[in-house]
Nucleic acid binder design. Structure first.
Lengths: 270, 270
DNA sequence: GAGTGGTCTAGACCACAGA
DNA sequence: CTGTGGTCTAGACCACTCG
């Protein structure tokens, strides 16, 4: 009754060879990997097997494939740490708030933070958002979408999307705070402008889950539609308990590490 | 330049038929699905295609397969919500703390909380834990492992593992607080006993990531080794900033929704 | 033993990128 | 046009469960 020593299959075995090379740095981020037919010949396996090898590594975030072009080593190999309870502190907010925090997160990984692709428009929010805002079924409200990308410092070609963040604001808040529709919301970001307009956020709530992406999200992130993503639902609440901002962060599930830190009241003992 | 209307393949199309049936409740949790050869005949597809259909649904957590037996509808279809910043409140702690919180989480989903499989032993901690505790490379310390399972109220056969939680304590804390090695740590749980022994936790930190499971974890959760899991690294810190408890929660990535809520200091305005 | 899921093969066909 | 990834087929072989 020794421990079960089930040996791995070809896919896992060959994948782990490549995985080791990537993690050791023998294969540089952004570099091209052998094509599937080539990989097939190198290891004497069937086409599907070679594809599965790359599929597994892709799933782990070490590799990405582009039809018609080839398969490449990912730019982001390790995990990006996001300190969720730190990034909204007032001192940081004066320096740009969550947006500045994102840049710091990227720089700490040695990446250049490419300008995000920003879309500001009135749009129909997702059902869950509309319900919280008590909006009509197909009513529109302000949406701020930011596609966050990183690249290598010396290479303008290689880009990787690491986050799609979509903020939604209730209609009356938008009316009272028109700067939200501006590209630049000034010092301290949108939360500071909202506070000045009487919608001060005193409590934040974030809910995290792993789910399948919408086709649009998969497209924006450059991942296959069947690959699950990490979703953070960020809500900002006023002292009255009203939700005045909802931001959906969609992340490649393998590239992030989210940290939360809080104090607990302790019982009388000790 | 209309919107790209790329039609889904057979796998996605047939999978979504089954997915709909499961989500509508037409296929009951725990019920057996047609075998792969049967599914193959029903839809006139190849063996691999039928397997891929179940593979996709399995990836989404709607279905699980057992070699030699068959494929079944998962017991847990929706997401289990875990309110991470609530579950360690002192009032809750008196009623059993995090363990009681887990039971409440399950009951709110209509599940019966089967007794966890508990293993208490001295063991070599993972490298990351050993480093934080500044322990020697292969030194052992106390491990409390709990395999959390849920089942249906009327069925003793169907069981699903929804969490493997492994707590590690530093050697000197274990010496000062021998009750940690007991099965029942009493009112308020281990954190209360540690507070009484002079290791009061005043701050908690949790870090979340999605990663590949170890073979042991995949086995314990009853999932294929290549399916990624959610990992929560829970740390308890004393007023001096020392980490006196590390608990690793390994979860099936599709079955949970984690919630954090905290207050933010707001700038002077408003 | 028969029936199940799990892995792999060999090869066809398609969609897409780029010269 | 050629070469790339992506999907699907048809079938072999293995490992496991259960009667």
């Amino acid at each position: 009754m020794a421990t079960k020593q089930k040996e791995p299959g070809k896919v896992e075995r060959i994948a782990s060879e490549i995985r080791d090379k990537i993690e050791r740095g023998a294969l540089a981020p952004g570099s091209r990997l052998p094509g599937v037919p080539q990989l097939q010949k190198e290891h004497g396996v069937a086409y599907q097997t070679a594809r599965d090898i790359y599929g597994l590594l892709e799933d782990e975030g070490l590799v990405f494939s582009r039809r018609g072009k080839g398969t490449y080593v990912s730019l982001v190999i390790g995990k990006i740490v996001s300190d969720r309870t730190q990034r909204y502190l007032p001192t940081l907010r004066e320096a740009g708030g969550a947006v500045g925090a994102f840049e710091a997160e990227m720089r700490s990984m040695g990446f250049e933070n490419k300008d995000p692709v920003v879309t500001i428009a009135k749009d129909v929010p997702p059902k869950k958002v509309a319900e919280i805002y008590e909006m009509h079924h197909r009513a529109k409200t302000l949406k701020r979408e930011r596609i966050m990308r990183v690249g290598l410092p010396d290479n303008d070609e290689a880009l990787e999307v690491v986050q799609v963040a979509t903020s939604w604001f209730p209609p009356d808040v938008v009316d009272a705070c028109p700067v939200l529709a501006e590209n630049n919301t000034g010092t301290g970001g949108s939360k500071s402008r909202m506070a000045e307009a009487g919608f001060r956020q005193v409590r934040l709530r974030e809910e995290i889950e792993v789910r399948s992406p919408t086709p649009e999200e998969a497209d924006a992130l450059g991942i296959p539609a069947e690959r699950a993503v990490l979703e953070i639902t960020h809500k900002g609440l006023t002292a009255e308990g009203r939700v005045v901002e909802i931001c959906l962060h969609v992340l490649p599930r393998s590239k992030w590490r989210l940290a939360y830190e809080w104090v607990i009241d302790t019982p009388g003992t000790g």
